[in-house]
Design a binder for these strands. Sequence first.
RNA 1: GGUCCUUUGGCCGAGUGGCUAGGCAAAGCUCUGCAAAAGCUUCUACAGCGGUUCGAAUCCGCUAGGGACCUCCA
Length: 497
Amino acid sequence: MALHIYNSYSRKKELFKSITPGHAGMYVCGPTVSGESHLGHARPYITFDLVFRYLQWKGFKVRYVRNITDAGHFEEEGREAEDKVSKKALLEKLEPMELVQKYSNLFHWAMKKFNNIEPSIEPTATGHIVEQIEMIKKIIREGFAYEVNGSVYFDVKKYARHYDYGKLSGRVIDELMETTRELEGQEEKRDKADFALWKAAAPEHIMRWQSPWGVGFPGWHIECSAMATKYLGARFDIHGGGMDLLFPHHESEIAQSTICNHTAPVNYWMHNNMITINGKKMGKSYNNVIKLTELFSGNHPLLSQPFHPMAIRFFILQSHYRSTLDFSNDALAASDKAFRRLWEAYETLKKLPATAGAPADDEELDEKVKSWLDEFEEFVDDDFSTAKVLASMFEIVPIINSLKDGHISANAISGNTLLYMKNHFRVFLEDIFGLQAISNADDKLLNGLLNLLVQIRKTARGKKDFVLSDSIRDHLQKLGIQLKDEKSGEMSWTIGS
RNA sequence: GGUCCUUUGGCCGAGUGGCUAGGCAAAGCUCUGCAAAAGCUUCUACAGCGGUUCGAAUCCGCUAGGGACCUCCA
């Protein structure tokens, strides 16, 4: 099976075929750096990191572009120009760029914690004002935009006469006009459905640029079109983002780019679903967000403990990206435990001896393991069904542990299958899923100290001095370090709650 | 109001018409000096009603609940 992707545009799973053989271009809507990222933001960036990693593993040379929105968009069209960035800047008495820098840094810090690979290009909106202006000029020349009082609007009605406006988001344009909310200052537009390409800036507006239409700032949708076109071309393979961006953002992107470049911009539209909390979308406007810093520190009334970024990554990979994922402390705690168990089994697997060519004593089991391993790729090929891969891995976990403990004979599984397991677990867990060890056991000092304690405890146990040995174990337990007596007489330890 | 989606065991979640996903929790057992960890076993669910079918969690209809978008939103 080859990679199939669910295309939001056709609403079908489609075989992935890149435009340029061996290469793939992917654009993902990035963060608006006017505030701190929350759990909801983690999902698209982890999801598309997986897509990025998988395409690379499949042999594609991928250019992954993820923008940073630092220009700030108006809160509400037509209202007094209060763009998100400048408004907050006044409140916090910061320069807009200072604010942007702060939250960009914080965002990158969180991405690193999640072990997300950096995009190939991370363009900023403010760095591409020129490109955006050029694009708007072109749309005007094509006759699909008009200027009013220093602002430029896209003529949706005219566009809809020639193209399929609303196809992506499943909207009917006539209904759109009916249902669009009453907003102030709409009289500038010829039609309610029109959207701004460029907005004239009020004098108090901090973020402002010179343009052919006067001083102003770009509309919300144009930055993505301009930057995607610049770095990926008029037509590229994959465009990703949250489902909440389908309309109007992505719908408008299609319209702008289509007029400007005379081609539909994207072959495969991918949209991740929302993370919910108590069944409701986690979002700024609902006032129910849990920030990433709060998750990592456990500093939030809804959280019983800090959660490691890898536990969160695992939590997200355990569901399908197009399903809503309901957050709760219990659900996350369950993922945390599950991930630790899986990872420990993986560490155990790495240490199991394997000799190529050694036969299997238990052919049936051997075959079963092989078929589970074979399925990993099929599952990811099927629109990134990571949850299924993890389920299969958990089928194998007891086998790994049994091999270690001797519940299953060491020769039950063939050497080749063992090598296959070792390789496949590494590839899927680390390379493709981007998971990594939760504890920093490579800390030399810590390692040394713990090994010393383990030695002392071993000696004590040898002398049946259980008071001392239990005391060592209990004290370490209180520090969050768990000692485990192995069947072989060895002791191992793990750090973590 | 319009458009679309969703409802799976105590909780989270995967599910391509026929083959008990998986995780967490819980209970019992094995191992252990005692624990922990690990292993084994148990818990067989698909909102309700009706239909199609030899067969439906999966397809269709109705009813009820929940949600998303239509406005900044990942």
